[in-house]
Design a binder for these strands. Sequence first.
DNA 1: CTCTAAACAGAAATTATTTCTATTTGAGGG
DNA 2: CCCTCAAATAGAAATAATTTCTGTTTAGAG
Lengths: 138, 138
Amino acid sequence: MLNYYIEVLKDKGFKVTPRRKAIINIFITSNSHLTADEVWDRLSKKFDRCGIPSVYRNLETLAECGVLTKIQQFDRKKHYGLCSFAGHDEHHHHIICVKCGKVEEIKECALIQKRYINGYKVVRHFMQVDGICDKCLA
Amino acid sequence: MLNYYIEVLKDKGFKVTPRRKAIINIFITSNSHLTADEVWDRLSKKFDRCGIPSVYRNLETLAECGVLTKIQQFDRKKHYGLCSFAGHDEHHHHIICVKCGKVEEIKECALIQKRYINGYKVVRHFMQVDGICDKCLA
DNA sequence: CTCTAAACAGAAATTATTTCTATTTGAGGG
DNA sequence: CCCTCAAATAGAAATAATTTCTGTTTAGAG
């Protein structure tokens, strides 16, 4: 699983550094979305020296690669979740469990083939669904 | 137009204050989405004394009423746009012109009637479409 | 008109994020 | 395996959006 994401990183021309591997692992094991601060906390336990600017930069880089996806929460922090569609070019969005924070991919999309809406030429769109996952429902 | 939004405010049990009327007017005349800072700039020209915390609070209040809608941009500021569906309970999303910033309502939505996706019980969802409006296309 | 909760100003605090500079390191090429 | 260098990094400091706090004002119900 880690190796797959590393390949995505390489493919996009980014270096595979210990921090980046560790950050991906943090997301794999956390099974939830995390903020820069939360990632930094966990990263600090694995590395003696660890700057927060690197965390911000790496999260942004990983999001650029599609390894992570940005998640909209109701605080003023940026949240990121692991995206299992990384590397694929498949159009998709995400659903997030409001209880446990789990992130999954969904393919439902009203707009995938629409080029114009209300006379606007569509440039991009994003959708986020918040829900409660099956485990949390049980 | 202003009066319509004022009614929405009243209906929700909020007071109709000079600042709030002025803020709504700013959005009506700007015909684009604005940040707290931009609203404050314009408000300061109409009122001698004008605190930025009030601007933040009022934008949040107006968004709560549905008079304004929050718009996701690629900076780290909160953006708000006037919503002409305020007061209606009609399900809708927004399309924003990436050139002039105009905001319009759209009804296209893949999820309106879906209660479950991937086994998740859907709590809420939001979608934003970025595009180029007809005027900017011409 | 009076009263009260809501709205307000202004200053100060908070905090997420970015910038800057010097140092280190991954990985391609010899 | 070593050299090289652009990319990645640490750490400190700066930035800037937003919130909190306190005391004052005001909208609107009665």
